[in-house]
Design a protein around this nucleic acid. Structure first.
Lengths: 177, 177
DNA sequence: CTGTGCTTCCTGTAGCGACTGAAATATACA
DNA sequence: TGTATATTTCAGTCGCTACAGGAAGCACAG
């Protein structure tokens, strides 16, 4: 994929703009998008040329994408070069992204709340109230976090079936009472 | 809450830094944090002074918080002023935040993917492959989105019981086979 | 030990978004 | 109508982050 069609350019532009709210910057997202659409692995040089981004920047971005676990290196026989590809399975990819998001956003946030609950309570009425409020918020995250941690261990097909049930699960589980 | 204790300041600082990844900017988050910890509603003037933020900025930020639905206005008898408070129930608040996040991030993203799936396929093998990939990603979001839309209609206590089950739900639903 | 391919580090630049402060506008009551 | 209160709007400033591009470092093949 040396030259990009106009359509692909259009897509990568939006991909970069949109996904940059997800913890990666615009270029990193575009690189990922490029790999996502590419039928074969690409090397850093190609990526650099295709997206008109400095070679060093591509290198750093790829490192970041690898640290997220959504891009892997591939080696081709007879070439010293490293090639890159993104996870072939979309569900695997999304699971990875969600897991990283949790690790990088939710977990630190819960740590902050925990510390704050202890710290805010200075004995005054307002302090006690504040502590109480923070604990309420922490409670939400703990329930949610525990739920997620249990679900994430399950294999993808099971999750798919689970999600497909939607709200019906509630009825089936007898949670209406 | 005219003056902030050092502890509260510490908390609001972190609250602002952390939560600003969630679609609101730092000050908006701090204002929300302040209201969240406050036992009584506050007016814009107080907020401005307490956080040392320009009055106009507070005004705009409050509007934004209201548009998210996580801050409400309250009127006090005998005063023309508007007072502000955040949703009292934390679970209600988090549900609102999640709903807004979906509306502002996921839904547009799905629209982009839909358009791109049609656009990318120029008849070439690479184009066909790209379309296929985008559809895979779209598939993930559609399953997830449908699941969420069904769950969100249920009352909070039901959701809590549901989440509390964690991975056990899978077994109970007979999804292991 | 030398060239090649890649990564890491550093510096400078550009652009974006947050924020201020002031001016313009709107609303409520005396 | 005048005064006090609120919101809206906007120009200007500031800081942060992305990014380019070059220089040095590293690893390996010959």
């Amino acid at each position: 994929m040396p030259q990009l069609s106009e359509r692909t350019q259009r897509f990568l532009t939006r991909y970069g703009e949109m996904a940059s709210h997800w913890g990666l910057n615009r270029t990193e997202c575009q690189i990922h998008g490029l790999l996502f659409l590419s039928p074969k692995p690409l090397d850093a040089e190609e990526i650099s040329k295709t997206l008109s981004v400095a070679r060093s920047h591509v290198s750093n971005s790829l490192k970041e994408l690898q640290s997220w676990g959504i891009v892997k290196t591939v080696h081709v026989l007879g070439s010293r070069r490293e090639y890159f590809e993104c996870l072939p399975d979309v569900w695997e990819m999304m699971r990875t992204v969600v897991a990283e998001q949790k690790r990088r956003e939710i977990d630190p946030w819960m740590r902050i709340l925990k510390e704050a609950a202890a710290d805010l309570d200075d004995g005054s009425p307002d302090g006690t109230y504040a502590k109480h409020r923070v604990q309420e918020m922490l409670g939400f995250f703990e329930v949610f976090s525990r739920w997620y941690e249990e679900l994430r261990r399950l294999p993808t097909p099971m999750i798919r079936r689970f999600l497909a049930l939607g709200g019906k699960a509630i009825g089936l589980l007898g949670l209406k009472g």
